[in-house]
Amino acid sequence: MPDRELLIRMRGVVKRFGDHTVLDQLDLDVPANEKLALIGPSGSGKSTILRVLMTLEAIDAGIVEIQGERDLAKVRSHVGMVFQQFNLFPHMTVLRNVTEAPIHVLKEDAAQARARAMDLLRMVGLEDRAEARPAQLSGGQQQRVAIARALAMRPRIMLFDEVTSALDPELVGEVLGVMRRLASEGNMTMLIVTHQMDFAREIADRIVFLHEGRILEHGPPSRILDAPEHERTRRFVKALRDR
């Protein structure tokens, strides 16, 4: 990697759930603006990495730094996350879902926050649904709102946790389209946990293959997907492709 700022640094990270070790002495560096895809079988720790970065899980050992800061709660507002189940707030309109955090966390002026929220909703193609409730939207629309909501906090890092896994197949494309646009704008660091290998190939600068809480191998998409070093990676990629 050229000497870009190192935005995320994980060293010897261990996370256990009971007897099960989900992250096992994991090391990971993510430079600024990298588009990183995390792949691997379920239980390999992909989502846990994102959840640790978002302060949703505490680690049992090791070091995690974001922008050189170890107290991740302090840099939390620089990190946005989109969840598999959207996690929109059902009692609020779409617009308020997007403005609530800028107004109350960033202390933005309400009118300004609304204007920016409308810009973001326009970007995800939902400006005409601003007054709808999440329950009135399709899964794909809800997930696009969730992306707009996360972007409203102006994060430097966006975490995508299997964001298309809960969607009907015909709705996957619209969400990937939004992520593609976001990636093309450049100055955003993206960590994407996904099973969409074609999408990973297209969007990612680098793919990390996780196995049993460790990084088994990582590299540019072409190498990981077409010429993996490890038999385990080869089998995983083949299984997804044959699906």
């Binding site: 302060t55 507002s77 969840f83 996690n87 955090a101 966390v105 996360a150 906090m153």
Partner: peptide
């Protein structure tokens, strides 16, 4: 998940 959504948005 609602609590987690709030954490992800930086809510106190």
């Amino acid at each position: 998940q609602q609590w987690e959504g709030a954490v992800a948005l930086g809510f106190s």
